[in-house]
């Protein structure tokens, strides 16, 4: 059973054991507007928490996505190459970005649960 965490940069992580699936939240997708291109990290890449790891382009602008925790990328959602609009349609499901193994699970403590994230968004 995956446990869901949220970052202040509007990413979600579905964590199972030492692996996580990562994407951006529906709130972030809505703020970005119509997503037309997503650049994803290649499998095998090692990232540190807060590294720039992906780029989301809307019609108007490009936005960087930061690694919510440290670890190694194991897979990315290749389907987004052809259908980036999936991120707008199903941000927390089919619109996932990448999977990773966590190198420092203690970093999860710096993230929020759903109710804390909902409160965080309300305050924006």
């Amino acid at each position: 059973m995956a446990e869901i965490y949220y970052s202040e940069d509007h990413e979600w992580l579905a964590v199972e054991g030492s692996t996580a699936k990562v994407g951006i939240t529906p709130y972030a997708a809505e703020q970005l507007g119509d997503i037309v291109f997503v650049e994803l990290p290649d499998a095998g890449r090692n990232v540190k928490q807060q590294d720039e790891v992906a780029v989301v382009e809307s019609v108007k602008t490009a936005s960087e996505i930061y690694a919510p925790v440290s670890g190694t990328i194991t897979a990315n959602n290749e389907a987004l190459e052809d259908t980036p609009e999936t991120v707008n349609e199903d941000a927390q499901g089919a619109g996932w970005f990448f999977e990773m193994t966590l190198s420092n699970p203690e970093e999860l403590a710096s993230l929020m649960n759903k109710s804390a994230y909902d409160e965080f968004v309300k305050g924006l």
Partner: peptide, 12 residues
């Protein structure tokens, strides 16, 4: 106004 509720693509 840079955009309205429908968004840039829909407005275009």
């Amino acid at each position: 106004p840079v955009q309205f509720a429908p968004g840039v693509r829909a407005e275009h």
